[in-house]
Simulated scan of single mutants.
Amino acid sequence: MQDEKLSILYVDDEEQNLISFKAAFRRHYTIYTANSGKAGLEILQNEKVSLIITDQRMPEMTGVQFLEKVIPAYPDTIRMILTGFSDIEVIIDAINTGRVFRYITKPWDSGELKMTIDNACQLFRLQQNNKSLLEELHTRVHEQERTLKLFQKYVPEEVVRKALLSTEESIFEGETKEVTVLFCDIRGFTTISEQITPKEVVALLNAYYGTMTESIRRHNGTVNQFVGDEIFACFGAPVSQVNNEQNAVFCALEMMKRLDKLNEVFFDKLGQKIEIGIGINAGEVVVGNTGSEDHIGYSITGDTVNTGKRIESLTKDFPDTILISDSVCHKVEHLLQLKTWEPMSLKGKRDKIQVYEVLGRK
Rank of each mutant, 00 (worst) to 15 (best):
137 L>H: 15
199 K>L: 12
333 E>W: 08
182 L>Y: 08
187 R>C: 03
313 S>D: 12
99 R>M: 12
49 V>P: 06
127 Q>E: 11
264 E>T: 12
132 S>K: 15
24 A>L: 03
334 H>W: 01
73 A>M: 01
249 V>M: 10
333 E>V: 05
8 I>E: 01
283 G>A: 03
133 L>P: 00
347 K>E: 08
117 I>H: 01
357 E>N: 11
33 T>C: 12
355 V>Y: 05
29 Y>G: 03
120 A>Y: 02
113 L>S: 00
43 I>C: 07
313 S>C: 05
125 R>Y: 14
197 T>R: 14
68 E>W: 13
243 N>Y: 00
237 A>P: 04
6 L>W: 08
311 I>Q: 12
362 K>T: 14
56 Q>R: 09
299 S>H: 09
242 V>S: 04
240 S>E: 13
97 T>W: 06
289 N>W: 09
334 H>N: 09
85 F>Y: 11
213 T>K: 07
105 T>R: 02
127 Q>D: 04
327 S>A: 13
102 R>S: 03
93 D>R: 13
268 D>C: 07
43 I>H: 07
289 N>R: 03
141 V>G: 11
198 P>W: 12
116 T>R: 11
25 F>P: 08
337 Q>A: 00
217 R>W: 08
225 Q>P: 00
348 G>K: 03
51 L>N: 06
187 R>V: 02
86 S>C: 00
247 N>Q: 07
268 D>N: 07
167 T>Y: 13
335 L>S: 11
306 N>Q: 06
287 V>I: 15
311 I>P: 14
11 V>T: 10
306 N>L: 09
341 W>C: 04
313 S>Q: 13
339 K>W: 00
180 T>W: 00
341 W>R: 15
322 I>C: 01
197 T>P: 06
39 A>H: 01
129 N>D: 06
127 Q>F: 07
260 D>K: 15
89 E>A: 15
197 T>F: 06
339 K>E: 12
46 N>D: 09
114 K>G: 03
304 T>F: 13
239 V>L: 11
14 E>D: 05
39 A>G: 01
4 E>K: 04
146 R>G: 12
86 S>D: 15
333 E>N: 04
135 E>P: 02
87 D>H: 11
298 Y>H: 02
233 A>D: 12
262 L>Y: 13
351 D>G: 06
46 N>C: 09
192 I>C: 10
238 P>F: 10
216 I>R: 11
70 V>Y: 08
52 I>W: 00
143 E>Y: 05
130 N>P: 07
266 F>S: 06
222 T>W: 10
140 R>P: 06
25 F>T: 03
128 Q>M: 11
267 F>K: 05
23 A>N: 01
163 A>F: 10
75 P>I: 13
117 I>E: 05
10 Y>I: 01
128 Q>S: 14
266 F>G: 05
109 D>W: 04
82 L>F: 10
90 V>T: 14
212 M>K: 11
39 A>N: 05
234 C>I: 10
340 T>R: 15
317 D>P: 02
298 Y>E: 07
142 H>C: 09
186 I>S: 07
334 H>P: 04
107 P>V: 04
68 E>F: 07
112 E>N: 00
148 L>D: 15
126 L>R: 01
23 A>M: 01
235 F>H: 09
33 T>R: 12
159 V>F: 06
6 L>V: 11
191 T>P: 12
